[in-house]
Amino acid sequence: MEKILVGLKRVVDYNVRVQVKKDGSGVETDGVKMSINPFDEIALEEALRIRERGEASEVILLSIGTTEAQQQLRTGLAMGADRAILVNNSEPLDPLVVAQTFKAVIERENIDLVILGKQAIDDDNSVMGPMLAAIWDRPQATFASEIAFDGGKARVTREIDSGLETIEVDLPAVITADLRLNEPRYVKLPDIMKAKKKPLDEMSLADLGVEAVQTVRETAYAPPAARQRGIMVEDVAGLVSALKDRGLV
């Protein structure tokens, strides 16, 4: 296999306590820490390991987002990706349009394997892998916890609700990374310097022939319903009697 494409989304860091703006117009993202979507770091780590085993020759990053996403792409390059593509966009887009953008890049670059995260932790949508696989008319292997290659095929173990499922897919294919796939490496200082020289191409949706549309609209934001603060008990006897009071044991 030649080329692996990895999706890299810039998201609010998982440690940030996200707040809804007082006027309900969105969530507060001003001045909060931004990071690579954690699942995309896992996806990238896996791509790097595949290349390091000699099973692929190039790892390319793709982000669709604002100019600031350069930061996350540079971090991905420092982890070891060969080059990056940033498709500049600051308007809300339908996920289908993001999938079409991936497909346009895949066709331009002749990609053999796409690895995405299973979910972006901002919108928690968890749709991109299957949507892209559908419009590309290729197999999908979602929630991967193990990947092995055999000729033009990939054998993928998936974390499903009932346990672990293994499927085999022909390449090219789309795989989405789950938490147990690997533990991403840390970036070392010299690699950050080297990453500054790696290619990072910027383009627009129009350059790729993709039309920016938004048909699904987010119209209001609210904080979640709060739970009442409960009681503290002193010991096991107190706990058992509190459970009995509520008819739970």
Binding site: L96, A99, V127, P130, M131, T142, E159, D161
Partner: peptide, 23 residues
């Protein structure tokens, strides 16, 4: 919105040229 639905429905949506409302 189980692993079954999360795997299947976005593929259905995209084949129909639609987006999915998740969860």
């Amino acid at each position: 919105s189980t692993t079954y639905g999360k795997d299947l429905m976005p593929r259905v949506a995209a084949l129909l040229g639609l987006n999915q409302v998740s969860d």
